[in-house]
């Protein structure tokens, strides 16, 4: 399938006068590499800064969005995917999609068993706490699950 695509087609993008060109693969220009590195550092600073601003639910979404942008930069520039065979990109995206499938189905039911889960600290943790830290605040009740499990 990919046999027809010629590698050399994309190789000239990295041309510099007097530079050796490999028969296969693609030489990424230095400005791309350094630019990508700088962008990643800047995004790291931004994502740390955003942590201290309260955006509610959006905090997680924003942090993940920045992480996705950073990952894309790494994949496309550092990992050559921008110039590589498309099938390799498909492999990367495919693997992420399958993680997504696993997450979607497993997470769908996340509150299904809440009624049968322990409120407060689980027994094994609690016995240890009781034994070792008598002053510790054991077994606080979760208010978030609306007392579903509080059937006793």
């Amino acid at each position: 399938m990919a046999h027809q695509v010629s590698h050399s087609a994309g190789a000239h993008a990295g041309s510099h006068a007097g530079e050796v060109h490999p028969e296969v693969g693609h030489v990424v220009p230095i400005k791309y590499l350094v630019g990508a590195g700088a962008a990643l550092l800047v995004l790291t600073v931004i994502t740390v800064a955003v942590r201290y601003i309260d955006l509610g639910e959006a905090n997680l979404a924003l942090a993940l969005a920045i992480a996705v942008v950073k990952a894309t930069i790494v994949a496309l520039i550092f990992m050559h995917l921008r110039w590589d065979r498309p099938f390799n990109l498909l492999v990367l995206i495919g693997s992420i999609v399958f993680v997504g499938i696993m997450l979607a189905f497993s997470a769908m039911d996340v509150h299904q068993n809440s009624a049968t889960m322990f409120n407060g600290n689980p027994p094994e943790a609690e016995t240890v706490m009781q034994a070792n830290a008598p002053g510790a605040p054991v077994a606080q009740f979760r208010s978030t699950n609306g007392g579903v499990g509080d059937t006793n």
């Binding site: 696993m102 189905f105 497993s106 039911d109 322990f118 689980p122 027994p123 094994e124 943790a125």
Partner: peptide, 21 residues
């Protein structure tokens, strides 16, 4: 570590999801 252990607050059903995936 307690991730799959209900007496540690973990979720044994999560193990089943993983295993059958």
């Amino acid at each position: 570590i307690g991730i799959f252990n209900p007496s540690m607050g973990g979720d044994p059903v999560l193990y089943q999801h993983f295993f059958w995936f």
